[in-house]
Amino acid sequence: MSRLGKKQKKKKWPWIVGILAVVLVIVLIYGFMIFKGFTDTVSDIHQPIEREVSDKRDAPVTFDDKEPFSVLVLGVDEREGDAGRSDTIIVLTVNPETKSSTMVSIPRDTYTEIIGKGKMDKINHAYAFGGIEMSMHTVENLLDIPIDYVVQVNMDSFKDIVDAVGGITVNNTLDFTVDDYSYPVGEITLDGEEALSFVRMRYEDPRGDFGRQDRQKQVIQAVLREGASVNSLVNYKSIFGAIGDNVRTNMTFDEMVDVQANYRDAFGKVDQLYIQNGAGQKIDGIYYYMMNDEELNEIKTTLKTHLEL
Rank of each mutant, 00 (worst) to 15 (best):
A222M: 02
A279V: 14
F38M: 15
D44K: 11
A261V: 09
R264D: 11
T102G: 00
Y289L: 09
D175A: 05
D82Y: 05
F35C: 12
I220C: 01
I243H: 03
G211A: 02
A261L: 14
G241H: 10
L4R: 14
I220A: 06
E113G: 05
N262V: 12
I106Y: 07
K159Q: 15
I145A: 02
K12M: 12
D109E: 09
K9E: 15
R248L: 01
L296H: 09
I16A: 07
I49G: 10
D179Y: 10
F253E: 12
V73Q: 02
E67D: 05
T88C: 01
K269W: 09
E52M: 03
N154M: 06
G280T: 09
E52C: 01
K269N: 15
T173Y: 13
K122F: 05
Q8Y: 12
K12Q: 10
I34S: 11
A279S: 15
K36Y: 11
G37A: 12
D205N: 06
D163I: 05
F35A: 12
L24I: 04
A21N: 06
Q213M: 05
L307V: 01
D77W: 00
R79E: 14
E295C: 05
K66R: 11
Y263E: 06
V162Q: 07
D254Y: 15
V234Y: 13
V27L: 15
G131S: 00
Y236S: 08
A222D: 06
D293T: 10
L307P: 00
A128D: 10
F176T: 02
S238I: 07
G208Q: 03
G268S: 09
G227R: 04
G116V: 04
D293P: 11
T177Q: 12
G130H: 01
V71A: 05
S100R: 13
K99C: 08
T173M: 13
T62Q: 14
P60T: 01
D160S: 13
D55L: 12
Y30H: 12
P14E: 06
H125P: 06
V150F: 07
E187G: 06
M120E: 14
T112S: 07
D44M: 11
E97A: 13
I239L: 14
G166D: 04
R51A: 04
N250R: 04
F267L: 02
V25H: 08
R264E: 08
D87I: 00
V153K: 00
I90C: 01
N292P: 10
Y183F: 15
N171P: 08
Y287G: 10
Y111E: 14
V91S: 02
F32I: 11
W15R: 07
F240V: 06
E295F: 05
